[in-house]
Amino acid sequence: MTNSPPRIAIVWRGDRDARCAATPQNNRFHRIFEELAAVGFAPEPAVFDEELADEVLEQLLAVDAVLVWVNPLDDGKTREILDPLLRQVAKAGRFVSAHPDVILKMGVKEVLYETRHIGWGVDTRLYRTGADFRQTFVPTFLAAGPRVLKQNRGNGGQGIWKVEFTGAPRGGGTLISVLEAKSSSVPETIDLSDFISRCDTYFTEGGCIIDQPFQSRLPEGMIRCYMSGSRVVGFGQQLVKALVTPPSGPGGEPLQPGPRMMHPASAEPFQTLRTRMESEWTPEMMSTLGIEAASLPIIWDADFLYGPPDTAGNDTYVLCEINVSSVFAIPDEAPAEIARAMASRLEQSSKSA
């Protein structure tokens, strides 16, 4: 008699039809299914929707581990039901990645403020209430240069704004130009007071706003550093167009991003960043946020913009976001690293049990 292989549920969002039709082969995570099976696991789909919560909970309580790919915001749906469900599964002794409590520490924009002292940080401010935001975010502050405002939880550029001072028209008020990072956005001129009122919703349910200086090298592209636990497993490089002001006049359509070019962890141009992530910045983040190695997500990424060159002319890197909830697409090497990390985590769990 042989022991059954450990069951690993892979969770993503879909409706009942998608749940009924899902197999390890017919979805975008098929490479992850393949690599998990190759190291001796029995991976299975676990398509989630709020209407299916009881059914999904029953399934997850019957497996050994859970890997989750669900965005915080998706066509108006949130993780309000999913996160308590995952906490219940974890409390029952199942390994869950990423755990909702870990997401709240490192997968929100507030991490930019909490880790601003780390080498990836810049002048970062935090507004916890609308009153604080209205009192502090004043025209004289904007006169020093454009700022980028970010709501605490979101994805796809929602609630991320480039804000620039335009002028003070006759009759009072302060005109600003705002550009949201989500796809197809175009600049809008608006009174500062009206824009601040528009942001009131970002403070609901314990939300906040993070405020950073705009990075002038943004048009040079963004580097996405893919991590499995504390190991770099690849890089993605992309000429992003979010927050890049399109040309004015006729034909000033929203700019479209270039393709994301994937690179292995060994790619030479990124070795300085790799070393800093593995030996300095990730350990410092863990210490600051109180995250143990065993709780780091199986897959996560850190997005960097180029900062000003240092005194020797070398590139510096500015963290603009950490993604934890639903990291995909991923480099070709990442599925095998996910499987390796899962095997290691479950082995550690069995030894400590």
Rank of each mutant, 00 (worst) to 15 (best):
E180M: 03
E205R: 15
R147M: 07
G234V: 09
A144D: 14
G159H: 08
A242P: 14
Q212V: 04
F195W: 06
I160E: 07
G159L: 03
L149N: 07
R153L: 03
V138A: 10
C208K: 11
A168D: 02
G172S: 00
S183C: 05
G236C: 12
Y202C: 14
R217C: 11
I223G: 11
G156E: 00
Y202N: 13
W161G: 02
N152D: 01
T245H: 08
D200M: 01
G173T: 02
C225W: 04
E188R: 09
W161H: 03
G234E: 12
L179S: 03
K182H: 04
R134T: 04
S228Q: 07
E205Q: 13
L218T: 00
G221E: 09
G173V: 00
V148T: 04
I209W: 05
V232P: 12
T201W: 14
V186C: 04
P146G: 06
R231L: 13
R153G: 02
G236W: 12
L192H: 03
T189D: 10
F141Q: 15
E205G: 05
T174P: 03
I176Q: 04
Q215G: 02
S228Y: 08
S216F: 12
Y226R: 14
R198I: 01
S197R: 13
L175W: 10
G221Q: 07
P219H: 10
V178P: 01
I160Q: 08
F235L: 13
E205F: 05
V186N: 10
I190T: 05
G236S: 13
Q135E: 13
R217H: 12
D194W: 09
I209L: 13
A181M: 12
L192N: 05
P219W: 05
S185T: 01
